[in-house]
C-alpha cells in the first residue's frame, strides 16, 4: 500500500465540519453564565479542598486553572459543564473562561470520554516505525470495550520506544501489533500494562549512563549490552559497536 493512502481515519461530522461547536447556536432560554454564586452552586467538598490547595500554591490563584481542571476531570470523568461550573465557583472565574482554557489543551475532554485513555503516538518518529498500523490495531482491539478510549496523539516524548503509547499515563513501547490486544487485556484485568515494555523500567541508551545491577529493560538494540555484559564506567563512544 502506498504511503499516501495511510492517512489516519478522520472523524467526520454530518455537517462537514470537523469541529463540534462551530454550528451551535446558543440556547436563548438559558441565563448568562456569570461567575457561579457559591450559594447556589454545590461543589463536592473533597474537590473544593483539592482545588483550593492548588490555588494556594501560586502567587496568583488563577494559575491553578489547569491543575483544577485536571482534578475536576478526574472527579467527573470529563470536563462536563457541571465540572467546569464547580471549578469556576471555587476559583471565582466564569465557566466560559475555564471552557476556553480546557478546550485549548489536548488532555481535557469537553465531551464524555471512556474511563481509560490510550494515547497512541502517531507523530513522525513513531510513524516511521509503524505507529499508524499500531493505531489501527489498537482501535480494532478496543472495539467493543466501551471504557477504553483510543486516541491518536502527537509526539508524547518517547520516540526511543516507538511505536509507543501512553496507557492511562503509563508509557509503553516499542509496541508490535499483538501488544494492542495485550493492552486491552491488561486494562480489563486491572493489571499493570505491558510491564515488560514500560518506560519507567528502561535503561538509558547512552552507555555512560548504565550501571551494574540495573534490573530494568535494555534499550532497543542493546539488549545484550545490559543483560549480557553489564557496562561499567564510562565508555568511549568510539568503542561502541
Amino acid at each position: 500500500m502506498s504511503a499516501i493512502d495511510r492517512r489516519p481515519p478522520v472523524r467526520r461530522y454530518e455537517h462537514g465540519s470537523r469541529v463540534p461547536g462551530w454550528d451551535d447556536a446558543v440556547d436563548l432560554t438559558k441565563p448568562p453564565a456569570t461567575v457561579p454564586d457559591p450559594a447556589t452552586t454545590p461543589v463536592p467538598e473533597e474537590l473544593r479542598r483539592a482545588i483550593e490547595a492548588e490555588m494556594a500554591k501560586y502567587p496568583d490563584a488563577r494559575s491553578a486553572s489547569i491543575p483544577a481542571l485536571h482534578l475536576a476531570q478526574r472527579h467527573h470523568g470529563w470536563c462536563s459543564p457541571e465540572a467546569i461550573q464547580q471549578v469556576a465557583c471555587v476559583m471565582r472565574l466564569t465557566p466560559a473562561y475555564l471552557t476556553s482554557v480546557a478546550s485549548f489543551y489536548d488532555m481535557f475532554a469537553l465531551q464524555p470520554k471512556p474511563r481509560h485513555d490510550v494515547y497512541v503516538c502517531t507523530n513522525i518518529s513513531c510513524s516511521l516505525l509503524g505507529a499508524d498500523e499500531f493505531y489501527d490495531a489498537m482501535c480494532h482491539a478496543a472495539e467493543g470495550h466501551g471504557d477504553i478510549g483510543v486516541r491518536g496523539f502527537e509526539c508524547l516524548g518517547a520516540c526511543d520506544i516507538g511505536p509507543m503509547a501512553s496507557v492511562n499515563g503509563e508509557y509503553v513501547g516499542p509496541l508490535d501489533l499483538d501488544d494492542a490486544r495485550l493492552i486491552v487485556e491488561d486494562i480489563e484485568a486491572g493489571r499493570p500494562v505491558l510491564e515488560h515494555k514500560q518506560l519507567r523500567r528502561r535503561a538509558v541508551a547512552d552507555a555512560h549512563g548504565r550501571v551494574e545491577g540495573f534490573d530494568g529493560i535494555a534499550p532497543v538494540g542493546q539488549e545484550d549490552a545490559v543483560a549480557g555484559s553489564p557496562v561499567s564506567g564510562p565508555v568511549n563512544p568510539e568503542e561502541t559497536p
Binding site: 513522525i124 518518529s125 516511521l128 516505525l129 520516540c159 526511543d160 516507538g162 538509558v204 541508551a205 547512552d206 555512560h208 549512563g209 534499550p219 532497543v220 538494540g221 542493546q222 563512544p237 568510539e238 561502541t240
Partner: peptide, 28 residues
C-alpha cells in the same frame, strides 16, 4: 535524542562538535 530509522534509538550525551555520522552510525 535520536529516533526514527536507527538501530539504537535513545538519549546520548555527546560533546558538541562530534560528527553527525558518528552519532547516527557510531552511537545509534
Amino acid at each position: 535524542s535520536v529516533s526514527g530509522d536507527v538501530q539504537r534509538p535513545g538519549n546520548y550525551e555527546i560533546e558538541l562538535g562530534t560528527s553527525s555520522r558518528e552519532i547516527i552510525y557510531g552511537l545509534c
